[in-house]
Design a protein around this nucleic acid. Structure first.
Lengths: 233, 233
DNA sequence: TTTCTTATAGTTTATTTGACTACAAGTATA
DNA sequence: TATACTTGTAGTCAAATAAACTATAAGAAA
C-alpha cells in the first residue's frame, strides 16, 4: 500500500483500504494467499492482497476488483470480516482497512501477479510470518471466522476437489479445527445430513482399499438451510 | 450526520463515520436507542447515534465517545458489526460507516441528549420505522447479530434486572429469538448449566404464586467458557 | 373454601453422542 | 498363492440429551 499520487487522489478514498484473506487447501494443509509488493514502503515484503477503494464503488466491489488486479482471481464469494482501525496501523497516514475473507479451491484458479504486486503465492497458514502492517492480525481474525463458519455452514466443500472421499473431508475438518476425530462417527453424522451424493466411483491409484467418492449437493443444502441445522463435530 | 465545518475537517476523517445499535429490554419488549438530530440535512429525523471519527482515535474509541456525547451512556461493551459502504448511502458525500452494537440494561443508564442530538429515546424494535440513510439496514444486521450471539453467549442477562425469575429469562429468549418455549424444559436446561445462583428471595407484589429469584454468576461462566458450551434452546 | 394462575417437579420416549469392535476390500510382500 | 497390512465401512452399546407432556405445589382472588 502506497500513498496515492495526486492523480489517483481524486478518484479514491484516501483513508480507506481493503485487505483480503484468501484461504485454500492443498495436500492436507490450510494455506493463505499472499502478494509480494512491487513498490512503495513495503516493497519486497509479503502481505495480504489489498489496496485503495474508488469513490464510486462499495467495499465489496473494491475487494473483488483488487483481488483480480493483484492476483488474477475473480468471481469468488468474499465475505467482510470487519474494519481494522488502530490509528497507528499504517505508518504513512491514517488509514482504516476493511478486511475480507474467502475460501477457494486452489486448483480452480491460476495466479497472476499484477498491479503493484510483483509476486503471488500460497503459504501454509502455520508457516506464515512477518506480514506487513497489521496483516497478521487480519489473518488471525480471518482464521477465527473460518473456524466458526465451518461449524455452521458447509463451506469446507469449497476447499476440496469436486469428488472427494469421506476421509478427505474429515481430514479437512481436522486441519481447520485442529482436533482429531473418529472415522465411523464422522461418517455417520455427515451422511445423515443428506448433503452428500454418493457416486458410483472409487478412488484410483491408491495403495489400499479405494474409498467411495462423494460430491456435495447444493440443492439439498438449500432445503436443509430453511429448517436450520448445524455442523458441530 | 452533517458535512463537517472547515475547522472540524482538520481533525476528523472525512469519509468514515460510526453508528451504534444499542439494544435494551423493557416490559417484555426488545428496544433500540435512537436519537433525533438537531441540525443538518437530517434535522428532526430519528436515527442511530453516531458521527465522525477523529484522526487520532480507533473506531472502538470513537463509538464510545460518540455514544457518550449524544446519549449520555458510557462504559459499555460495544462490539463492531461491520462496515457499510454503499456509495450512495449518504447523500452529501461519499461516507463509509462502521456499525457497532451493544446490549444494556435500560434501568442502569440515564439518557441525556447532547452534541447534535436534540432528543434520545428507546423504541420498540418491532415498531421502529423511517430511519435516516441506511440505518434500517444497520439495525437489521445488528438484530441478526444479537440473535446469533444470544445462542452462544450469556449476553441476555445484560438485559434483565440483576435479580430475575426463570420465566422472565425465558420470555427474553422468546422475544429475541421469536419462538415459544416449554417452561419445564427451559428451566431444566438453564439450571443444569450452573450459571445462575438461586437467591433466598421471591418475587413480590404479584397476584399469583411468587417465583424464586436468581442472579447471573459471572465466575462460573468464566470457568465454563474454557470448556466451551452452548446456549441453544 | 373453592377457584384460578403460575411455579416447579417429574415421567416417558425418541434421538443423539462417543467410544468401541468387527469385518470387508483392497495392496504389498514373502 | 498365501499372508500380512492398511484403509474403508458397518454395527453395537451405554450414556447423555431433547421434546412433549403430566402432575402437583404455592399462593392470590373470588
Amino acid at each position: 500500500m502506497n500513498i496515492p499520487s495526486p492523480a489517483e487522489k481524486a478518484a479514491i478514498l484516501e483513508s480507506i483500504t481493503i485487505d483480503c484473506v484468501i484461504f485454500g487447501f492443498r495436500a492436507g494443509n490450510l494455506e493463505v494467499l499472499l502478494v509480494r509488493h512491487g513498490e512503495g514502503i513495503s516493497k519486497d515484503k509479503w502481505g495480504l492482497p489489498g489496496g485503495w477503494i474508488y469513490n464510486t464503488e462499495s467495499t465489496d466491489d473494491a475487494a473483488n476488483r483488487l483481488l483480480l488486479e493483484l492476483t488474477g482471481i475473480k468471481d469468488i464469494y468474499l465475505e467482510q470480516l470487519r474494519a481494522f482501525s488502530d490509528p497507528d496501523r499504517f505508518p504513512l497516514s491514517r488509514v482504516i482497512t476493511v478486511g475480507y475473507y474467502a475460501l477457494i479451491k486452489e486448483e480452480d484458479y491460476d495466479l497472476k501477479a499484477g498491479a503493484t504486486a510483483s509476486e503471488v503465492a500460497w503459504f501454509k497458514v502455520s508457516e506464515v510470518k512477518d506480514l506487513i502492517y497489521d496483516h497478521a492480525q487480519i489473518l488471525e481474525i480471518g482464521l477465527r471466522r473460518l473456524r466458526r463458519r465451518i461449524k455452521q455452514e458447509p463451506i469446507g466443500f469449497n476447499l476440496l476437489p469436486q469428488k472427494f472421499t469421506l476421509l478427505q473431508l474429515m481430514h479437512l475438518y481436522e486441519e481447520i479445527l485442529g482436533k482429531e476425530m473418529d472415522k465411523p462417527n464422522f461418517r455417520r453424522k455427515i451422511l445423515k445430513m443428506n448433503l452428500l451424493t454418493p457416486l458410483n466411483e472409487k478412488q484410483k491409484d491408491v495403495s489400499h482399499r479405494a474409498a467411495k467418492l462423494y460430491q456435495f449437493n447444493p440443492e439439498t443444502y438449500q432445503q436443509l438451510q430453511e429448517k436450520g441445522f448445524n455442523f458441530e463435530f
